[in-house]
Amino acid sequence: MMKQVFTRPESLKDVSTHFCPGCHHGSVHRLVAEALDEFGLRSQTIGVASVGCSVFLYGYFDVDVIEAPHGRAPAVATGAKRARPDRIVFTYQGDGDLAAIGMSEIIHAANRGEDITVIFVNNTTYGMTGGQMAPTTLPGQKTSTSPFGRDTSKDGSPFKMAELLSNLDGVAFSARVALNNPKNVLNAKKMIKNAFRYQVEKKGFSFIEALASCPTNWGMNPLDANQRVTDELIPYFPLGIYKNTANM
């Protein structure tokens, strides 16, 4: 008899996603679902979806979900967690949602040390609306609203959220991961598990920034997009753990 060695995580529904070929959202979804499964958290978890490509969270995760207004997921998660401190609450947000319109909500939720986990998918562009300039768009990167490339003298420089949040006392764990090769995927899994473990242990706010590709809006094929993560994103947004209260 054949032994099944690879299955769909219980926390994910048996459906196909709307994500484009080569997009890393699916991988991040899977890693989050695996982490929930491995800690046995599915039946205790409340997800908070944001606005952007991640809005369909409830279509893919087999957990209860609140859909938050654009950028407000950390405030919605705060309300949910305070009302139900016995639940596991996570947000899943893109770069426009978290680092532009929702900058205030993320900073303050982190600073209050809310016992929530934030999964931040940074693909340096607004995916859902058609590839406009994001707060994390790289200097010189051309997008549909920066046709001549991001001009840092006018648009500022990309936000480095994992570093920025690590400066706040309320943050227990902050790490940046990538999904561009098997080694990084394995490491991302470890970091995401760690983030949820911190919430289970009520250690405070945990934050994962996942560098992701967006082949469609980058105008690349999946392989080239993956290569861009290696060549351009990781050098600008170095991977690693920026805050880990367990080490302090």
Binding site: I46, V48, I66, A68, P69, R72, A75, V76, A77, T78, G79, A80, K81, R82, A83, R84, R87, S104, E105, I107, H108, R112
Partner: peptide, 19 residues
């Protein structure tokens, strides 16, 4: 919670109410 803004506050209300 004294929220960061009225936007923060209403969304906390949304989250709590959803539970």
């Amino acid at each position: 919670i004294q929220a960061e803004s009225e936007i923060g506050a209403i969304n906390m209300l949304l989250g709590a109410s959803a539970t």
